[in-house]
């Protein structure tokens, strides 16, 4: 079973408490963006076989959205961080590099 630590309330939550929100760090397109840019924002996804930065909601806990770095091939979790961050923080990237010898 998948466990993620909620960075807000600090609880280790199992996946029955969590709701997945898909790929993280998507930038919302504005009203004057092109159709292709809007398509990319709404539908196109990296869907990697490997490290995936994704959104989760602690749905049956504190209710807050947060981010997680997780491997879709091994289900290894590299860490979680707050939803306000526009990009993965250094300590998460370092944790991935330490485990993988690779950067995302």
């Amino acid at each position: 079973m998948l466990y993620l630590k909620c960075p807000y309330c600090g609880q280790m939550a199992d996946e029955t408490e969590l709701a997945s929100g898909g790929q993280a760090h998507l930038r919302r397109e504005g009203p004057d963006s092109s159709d292709s840019a809007f398509e990319a924002y709404l539908f196109l996804r990296d869907n990697p076989r490997g490290v995936h930065f994704e959104r989760w909601r602690h749905a049956y806990g504190c209710g807050k959205w947060f981010h997680a770095a997780r491997c879709t091939r091994t289900l290894e979790v590299f860490g979680t961080y707050r939803a306000q961050m526009g990009a993965p923080p250094q300590d998460i990237l370092a944790a991935i590099a330490a485990r993988r010898g690779e950067t995302a």
Binding site: L2, A19, S20, E54, T72, R73, T74
Partner: peptide, 10 residues
């Protein structure tokens, strides 16, 4: 509900 390539489920 989440991205997964492991061929095993929850």
């Amino acid at each position: 509900g989440f991205n997964n390539y492991t061929q095993r489920g929850s």
